[in-house]
Design a protein around this nucleic acid. Structure first.
Lengths: 239, 239
DNA sequence: CGCCAGGTTGATTTCGCTCAAGCAATGTGG
DNA sequence: CCACATTGCTTGAGCGAAATCAACCTGGCG
């Protein structure tokens, strides 16, 4: 079952348990007060769209609780799931900084609480705090490296290796603890189709790849429940 | 033949004909003076390395004249050509801003004049001019979009479509005028191997793809000389 | 109950990679 | 100046991973 509610909002950004991991940790106390005055919060229900490709970008969103899927339509009109955003992640900063419209769409995958920081407030904060801009810059630089690496790998690696990569990222994002035997179990937050699109493959190929890996005991799927007996074994095959 | 010399350097950054297209256009007159005090220039001969993957990043380079290839080694030890840098482009800003070592290598593909702005000077300028940081931020955001688009396309598109894309980018960078019939002719600045790596393919596949397109009259290759009878026809097939 | 979307499975095809050989241009040493 | 390696490019043959096409479940849901 999908979670249908989210924890109560903290009274203030000071109390936000994710702030230390966000760009906003670069702000001074005074600046956090200003941030807080500007932000507004909203809860999105599972499946609810947050913004669409091509929408004008009026500010950025901060994921406080829940899960968000970031998508992009391909040339054939299909929707490719690019990545998930989890609490502490900032959405839409790229379009904001480039001063362009959104080139992706975002959608709540579960009940999700988002803070919204509108354009004007963010612009002021950026002008005032060079450190904040630097944090965004580092974020962008790091995303860029990730994407470039993915690009290199996508040509050379098999669908199976890409699946392993994505599964490892997902279990990281789901924050599942490792069990005593070095394995993990968690629930996939997405459909097979979306998973297939994440590894730039087709549902049929994904299905066969999973089946194959199950036959080898590398992994076990039951619906959206995933069990990985040994993380190390998976890490080995993509070394 | 490869060009063996480059035009004389302008006396000052004020006279640099590319400044309006670079991040430095965000600087005030005073700041340009500071920039100029800090920069140093050097000519690199064709084939000369500029920096290597893993080198510490001590500043950024500004391409004033010539052509630079940006590469990355893949897991098998081969070198993939990621992109070309032409006059007005800034090299190494990503590693600099992220405070990391270079994750790519750069090499002059022709005689090239580069300005170097060392870390300390750049840091001062960035601290002083938020606008400069913002420009770099926009640059990073735009690069990120490009790379993500490439990633999407690399899965969905054929080697042929990717070749067409790269050829169109190259002719853009080479600044070749369109002839009266809507076609262009220019000299490839890179080898077949590099071209193959740019389209994430193999030399054999590139060779066959070129041959096929020649048979259809879409393109004509003679060594490194390329002739495209109709740009529109190429644009059509990747629409 | 029928319908439909999501998922699985099987059969077939295709694109691009690998392996292998040949060839032209360039360089090197005797 | 010639014999020869070397390097970059092309060509052919065969193979394999994944896409495509098509059928067929399954579980909601009106």
């Amino acid at each position: 079952m999908v979670k249908t509610d989210v924890p109560n909002a903290p009274a203030s950004c000071f109390d936000c348990k994710h702030r230390s991991r966000t760009e906003w940790s670069a702000l001074s106390g005074d600046e956090v007060v200003r941030l807080e005055k500007n932000r507004s919060c909203r809860i999105f229900t599972a499946g609810e769209p947050i913004y669409f490709e091509g929408d004008s970008c009026d500010g950025v969103f901060c994921v406080e609780a829940g899960l968000v899927g970031v998508r992009k339509g391909d040339s054939d009109g299909n929707s490719i799931l690019l990545r998930l955003a989890t609490p502490g992640d900032t959405l839409g900063y790229r379009a904001f900084l480039a001063g362009e419209n959104h080139h992706t769409s975002a959608e709540a995958l579960a009940a999700t609480r988002l803070c919204f920081i509108p354009r004007s407030g963010l612009r002021d904060l950026l002008a005032e705090s060079p450190a904040l801009g630097l944090r965004f810059l580092q974020h962008a630089a790091s995303d860029l490296d990730d994407t470039e690496l993915k690009l290199l790998q996508s040509a050379a690696q098999s669908a199976r290796a890409r699946l392993v990569h994505v599964l490892l990222v997902l279990r990281e994002q789901m924050q599942v603890p490792t069990d005593e035997a070095g394995g993990v179990a968690f629930t996939l937050p997405i459909s097979r189709q979306d998973l297939a699109s994440m590894i730039r493959s087709r549902p049929e190929t994904l299905s066969r790849t999973i089946r194959q890996m199950e036959a080898e005991g590398a992994i076990h799927f039951a619906g959206r429940e995933v069990h990985i007996p040994s993380l190390d074994a998976l890490l080995d095959e993509i070394s």
